[in-house]
Design a binder for these strands. Structure first.
Length: 595
DNA sequence: TTAGGGTTAG
């Protein structure tokens, strides 16, 4: 265990300091309502309250009825709204119940409308109102309305109330304003669990995983007790930044404190271990789960896909169906990605029709996974069709198709698609430019390549990284501009890696240039990254120039040094079976992947 | 009566 972590704090026994349910209530109303198990029961109770003269004028009868209908009975929200309309002068508590019901019932916009109605009716919001309406703003991502509510909060005495502060932090974080959330958080003297958890939610939502991990270390230092929800927020961040030591510490804590019954928490551990490359540990935790819901299955399947263990991902999807757990579109995205990596077109097509049969929503992620599947399997026209029917697209969707066109030798169309992407006001990112530059390389579009490379930072604020320099060297080299490519590499502001030099070496083979080829190989060797393929390329360059002795000398060097030979490998699917081939080899492996 | 959470694609 890493020394920087404190020992596990003793966990308070559950409910130790919670007050028990309000005991000995004299009124019969709560008892009556508690017995309601259906809308039919509620209707009877409602009639009883009317007959007894308690509804709609007795506040606790009104609140009780609304709460039971809006929050406790499935499908009772409509009933609650109807009852609410019959209350002549609803008080703040009645509004609060309805605002909560609407927010949790999937109508946060209506919750905000009701809040405005509350203000129009001159009902004064109380300390319970603000967390409820702020939650509605979070759900909607409604920053502007959240800010207005914040201003109103400041005018009341509730700005220092813990739940209100935390709800504000959460709202700003979810709406992408982590700087404001952080300022509010830092301004709290005694930060409670809720405020910390709101911060974790905000950083997670904004993809700031490093911040989540740092903040959790600060929380441990501060001695504030955390809970299962804290850990559920922190674990995915550990996975994404590879903080395996912290993840293992949390695993130990969960074990030591008897928290294994929480399947959401175990799912987070499964995800963390899989993302940190510990797929075996992830699988044993997954296998030990007493119940597995769709999220748990999806986490394990994506764990396999992300670790390039695609056959196991498909096998697990099959097990999931046997276990009769309905997959959702998130599951299908991982399964499709596994098919794309394997080149398992038939299986992928089956998954595609499966998603239609199940009427799964064609979300951006699902649509992108389909585009990528067809493009990677060489069915570029089907990929274009899948792209065309998507109701919404994002930068990843466009990039997947640009990449697909590029690798299927349709570079010009890839560039045209980039123009359409800009017209659609979608900002390209790093990966988009890799796709574009590789399109130029494959299609021999040197000037376009130069133009795109120059525009990256200047027009789109995307700083070229080593991969982009590699693509550019490749474009120049493939076009036979070997000296320019060499100069380009030498003038790079970042140290060229072996991949960059190898691109140049390969071009020297095509265009028969010994001098630049020798220099490239020298650099690869200097970087300690050479393998037999590099020497073979060099040997072939000599041979193509008639320098047989040099060619043989290099071959001898390969044998002497025993330079590792990494066989090329490719996959092909025939009749739902994926066959794996290695270069210069007969087929070595095949397996069923049909789900 | 009030808060917070787990799986997804290039």
């Amino acid at each position: 265990m890493a020394a920087t972590f404190p020992p596990f704090p003793a966990k308070a026994s559950p409910n130790a300091d919670e007050t028990s349910t309000p005991a000995g209530s004299a009124s019969a109303i709560p008892t009556l309502l508690r017995q309601c198990r259906s809308l039919g029961h509620l209707h009877q109770a409602h009639a009883h309250l009317i007959k007894a003269g308690l509804f709609p004028c007795h506040p606790s009868a009104v609140e009780g009825l609304l709460e039971t209908a809006a929050l406790q009975l499935p499908g009772g929200l409509g009933y609650a709204l109807e009852a609410f309309r019959r209350v002549p002068r609803p008080n703040a508590a009645a509004y609060n119940v309805m605002i909560r019901g609407l927010t949790s019932g999937g109508s946060p916009a209506d919750a905000l409308a009701l809040f405005r109605g509350m203000l129009v009716a001159s009902v004064v919001p109380d300390k319970y109102t603000f967390p409820c309406v702020l939650k509605a703003c979070s759900r909607l991502g409604a920053l502007e309305q959240g800010e207005q509510i914040h201003a109103r909060v400041e005018k009341t005495g509730y700005a220092l109330q813990e739940f209100v502060q935390s709800a504000l932090i959460h709202m700003y974080g979810i709406c992408g304003k982590m700087d404001i959330a952080r300022k509010l958080f830092d301004g709290i003297d005694k930060k409670g669990l809720i405020a910390w958890n709101a911060m974790f939610a905000g950083y997670s939502k904004n993809g700031a995983c490093g911040e989540v991990v740092d903040l959790f270390h600060r929380m441990l230092e501060s001695g504030v007790p955390f809970d299962d929800v804290t850990l559920i927020s922190v674990l995915p961040a550990c996975g994404r930044v590879g903080a395996l030591d912290l993840g293992e510490w949390i695993d130990g804590y969960v074990e030591a404190n008897g928290m294994k019954h929480n399947i959401n928490l175990i799912t987070s551990l499964v995800d963390m271990y899989a993302k940190c490359g510990r797929v075996g540990r992830a699988r044993s935790l997954f296998d030990g789960m007493p119940q597995k819901d769709v999220v748990a299955w999806s986490a394990m399947i994506s764990g396999y896909t992300q670790s390039s263990r695609c056959r196991e991902a498909l096998a697990l999807f099959h097990e999931m169906q046997v276990a009769d757990v309905e997959p959702n579109e998130v599951t299908m995205v991982s399964v499709l990605s596994a098919c794309a990596i394997l080149g398992a077109l038939e299986t992928g097509k089956w998954i595609h029709s499966f998603t239609r049969r199940k009427r799964l929503a064609l979300t951006v992620n699902l649509g992108t996974a389909l585009v990528d599947l067809y493009a990677k399997c060489g069915c570029i026209d089907t990929a274009i069709d899948a792209f065309a029917v998507m109701p919404r697209k994002n930068v990843l969707t466009w990039t997947a198709l640009i990449q697909g066109l590029a690798s299927n030798g349709r570079g010009k169309e890839a560039l045209d698609l980039f123009s359409s992407m800009l017209e659609a006001k979608t900002q390209p990112n790093e990966v988009t430019f890799i796709a574009l530059l590789s399109a130029c390389g494959h299609a021999g579009l040197v000037d376009e390549g130069r133009r795109i490379f120059a525009s990256m930072d200047r027009d789109y604020g995307v700083k070229p990284k080593i991969d982009h320099y590699g693509c550019m060297a490749d474009i120049l080299g493939r076009a036979g501009l070997l000296c320019e490519a060499h100069q380009f590499i030498k003038s790079m502001p970042i140290e060229p890696n072996a991949i960059v030099w190898r691109a140049l070496l390969a071009s020297c083979k095509v265009h028969k240039n010994v001098e630049v080829g020798e220099e490239s190989l020298k650099q690869i060797v200097r970087l300690g990254a050479s393998h037999s393929g590099d020497y073979i390329l060099m040997s072939n360059i000599y041979a193509s120039m008639g320098r047989v002795e040099d060619a043989l000398r290099i071959r001898a060097q390969i044998r002497e040094r025993g330079t590792e030979k990494i066989p090329g490998c490719s996959l092909i699917e025939v009749g739902g079976v994926v066959h794996e081939f290695f270069a210069d080899d007969s087929e070595t492996c095949s397996s069923e992947t049909d789900a």
